[in-house]
């Protein structure tokens, strides 16, 4: 099953490539004119157009691009005139790092809070949690980012307000926190429901009756059943983070593939835009495939 799904990825990726081409070549505006500036004469624009390879017939441009793609060459950025692959590699690193940190933190927070709420939920806990998680989902990310920046950088002077730090840099904490809040808020609801449902299940009652402690039951049986919502949230979230949260990248001045692609669209840097769309889509396909496999595994385990 997994093999078949993985075999499907190239087919879907080819579909993605076709869709992107269709979009790209219908973009209005002249990249050469944009690069040359308003004062450039028609000849200058023509020279720039030729240098960018935009004067060739469309089929030839597409053919050359595909040929390059087969050799792992994503073309040359029309903006910086550097190889797109190198630029994407450079901005993909920070995106992957951020995604990793966010997912680990979201799962830790979501599972802990969700389980505690299910186990010790008093009368006020439930509405408070509901309100909290609803709010975390509806506050625009930039608002969360702005508030965190003001509180932690400006008033408390604890963390750097921005920067492109790596895994062990303090600069990653605020952007990660910004993304963790909605993800964790979402996860809390499902973990809590899953845990509550399963505490009432027969097999859990049996286990409790057999004299197992509540804690071991929760950890052993109940959390396992919360696996599916965790996989669901993590996979959709990862897909989103890999697509680049351009907004978070902007507010925290972090390099990332989302902002890179957005800039490419603005400047009509077609090779860069095409390259980043392809890379993002490939990653999302990979994540989705792995998530499907994980569902199967989780279903089988909770069934068995």
């Amino acid at each position: 099953m997994l093999v078949r799904r993985i075999a499907m990825i190239p087919v879907l990726a080819a579909g993605v490539a076709v869709c992107c081409y269709l979009l790209m070549f219908s973009l209005p505006g002249d990249p050469a004119r944009l690069a040359a500036g308003p004062n450039a004469s028609e000849e200058t624009v023509a020279t720039v157009r030729a240098a960018l390879g935009l004067d060739r017939p469309l089929w030839q441009q597409v053919g050359d691009y595909l040929w390059g793609l087969l050799h792992g060459d994503l073309g040359i950025s029309t903006r910086s005139r550097q190889p797109v692959l190198g630029e994407i590699t450079a901005v993909l690193g920070p995106t992957l790092t951020l995604a990793l940190v966010v997912e680990v933190a979201a799962v830790l927070v979501g599972v802990t809070v969700g389980t505690l709420a299910a186990l010790h939920g008093g009368r006020w806990v439930s509405p408070a949690l509901l309100a909290g998680s609803a709010l975390s989902l509806c506050l625009p990310l930039f608002a969360i980012g702005l508030i965190l920046q003001l509180v932690f950088s400006l008033y408390l002077d604890l963390l750097p307000p921005s920067g492109g730090g790596g895994l062990f840099s303090t600069a990653i904490i605020l952007p990660a926190l910004t993304c963790v809040i909605p993800s964790a808020g979402f996860l809390v609801r499902f973990v809590r429901t899953a845990v509550e449902d399963h505490l009432a299940d027969d097999f859990v009652r049996t286990a409790l009756a057999k004299g197992l402690t509540r804690r071991s039951v929760v950890v052993g049986h109940v959390l396992r059943s919360a696996l599916t919502p965790i996989i669901a949230v993590v996979s959709t979230d990862l897909a989103r983070l890999l697509g680049g949260v351009a907004l978070v990248e902007v507010v925290f001045a972090r390099p990332g593939i989302g902002k890179y692609a957005f800039d490419a669209l603005e400047t009509r840097d077609l090779p860069a835009l095409l390259g980043s769309l392809l890379v993002i889509s490939l990653l999302v396909l990979l994540v989705n495939t792995l998530a499907d496999a994980a569902y199967d595994l989780a279903d089988r385990r909770s069934a068995g």
Binding site: L27, P28, G29, D30, R33, L34, P38, E266, T267
Partner: peptide
């Protein structure tokens, strides 16, 4: 309009 369309 966006920059590219504007310039053109």
């Amino acid at each position: 309009v966006d920059d590219a369309v504007y310039a053109q």
